[in-house]
Amino acid sequence: MKGLMVKELIEFKKRWIITGIMILVFSIYSITVALPMCLILPPLLSAVVFGSFIHEEQSKWRLYSIVMPYGRKKYVSSKYLAQILSLLFSMVIIAILWVISSVKNGVFDTGLLVILLLSACVVGLIYPLIIFPITMAFSSSTGRLFFLIINGAIGGFSGVAITDDDFINAVSTSKITSILPFIILTVIVAVYLLSWVLSIKIYEKRDL
C-alpha cells in the first residue's frame, strides 16, 4: 500500500498552493477574530483528499490501481488512511493556532484546546465516513453531491444551534456536557471504522 500512500502525498503536494493559501487565510482569521473558526480546517483538508477521487476518475487511476498488486481493499484503505493523516495535520495546525492565540491573549485554556481537538476529529471524520461509501458504491460526483448536502445540513444546524438560547442553555447546564465531546468522538470513530469496512465490502463487489 506504500505506493498508494506515496501517490496520495504527491497529489496533496500538487494542490499545496491553493490549500496553503486557504489554511493561511483561515488561520489568520482564527487568531485575529475567533479561534473556533480554525475548525474549518479539518473539513477543508478532507475535501482535498476527497478531490483526489474526482481526479482519479478522470484519469482512470481507479482502474489502473486495481491492476497493480494492491487489490480493492488496499485502495479503499489508502483513502481512509489519507483522511486520518489529513486530520492529524489539521490538528497540528489547530494546536499551533491555539498556542499563538494563547500567547496573544495571555490565557492558556487547555480545556479549550481539548475541545477544539475533539471537535476537529468529529468534523474531520464525519464527511469521509458518509461520503466515502457513497463514492465507492457510485461515483465521485454522487459523493460530491452528498458533500454539499452535509455541508448544508451542518451549516444549517450550527446556525440554528448557535442562535438558539434554549439550546445553548440546555447544553451548558446538562450534566453530560463535560463528557459529551468524548461520547461524540467515540461514536464518530466507531462509525468511521464501520464506514471503512462497509466501503471495502461495497468496492470489492462492484464492477469498475
Partner: peptide, 22 residues
C-alpha cells in the same frame, strides 16, 4: 488498458516514485 490511468498531474519522476513503491 486502452486509456493509461496515470494521474494527470504527474511527471515521469513522480510516476517512478509511485511504481517503485508498488
Amino acid at each position: 488498458l486502452d486509456e493509461v490511468g496515470i494521474p494527470e498531474l504527474f511527471n515521469i519522476h513522480e510516476v517512478n516514485a509511485v511504481m517503485k513503491n508498488s
